[in-house]
């Protein structure tokens, strides 16, 4: 096997906020990768159980916030016998340090993974400052 890394289970992190949410219920912090390539800043979040229509992505005042609502309806008919993980909504926000072209943001969800591409603005190229 080429990939010898064996996956470990991670405890879900519950969201801690200063303000309370209007909707009661658990909110978790989605595991997130952020990287940058030449054109864009890419944010990848794991939000299993969230339908694309229940995802809310917002950029305001350089703050990117993502919220994902899960539906409890599927669990209504089921009675739990043995549980190892809990379910809840997802919520996380980041302050963006780069200049982002807000019009060009694209998002897609695949297998419970949300990928956001935030293209960098063209008119703010990196400026190299020469020391005199």
């Amino acid at each position: 096997m080429t990939d010898s890394n064996v996956l470990d289970t991670l405890e879900k992190r519950e969201l801690e906020t200063e303000q309370e949410k209007t909707v009661p219920g658990k909110h978790y912090v989605p595991y997130t990768d952020i990287f940058e390539n030449e054109e864009a800043l890419v944010v990848v979040m794991e939000i299993p159980g969230v339908d694309r229509s229940d995802t809310n992505i917002n950029v305001e005042n350089n703050i990117l916030s993502v919220e994902g609502k899960i539906s409890h309806a599927t669990y209504d008919a089921l009675s739990p016998v043995y549980t190892e993980y809990n379910i809840g909504h997802y919520s996380r926000s980041f302050t963006l340090s780069n200049e982002i072209d807000q019009e060009g943001i694209t998002a897609r969800i695949e297998d419970g993974v949300l990928t956001l591409e935030l293209p960098k603005t063209k008119d703010a190229p990196p400026r190299r400052i020469e020391i005199a």
Partner: peptide, 18 residues
């Protein structure tokens, strides 16, 4: 994630499971 990237934050993990 492809090549030529600079990683800001890495929390997801990959690997095999059984």
């Amino acid at each position: 994630y492809g090549e030529n990237i600079s990683i800001h934050r890495q929390e997801r993990s990959a690997g095999t499971f059984d």
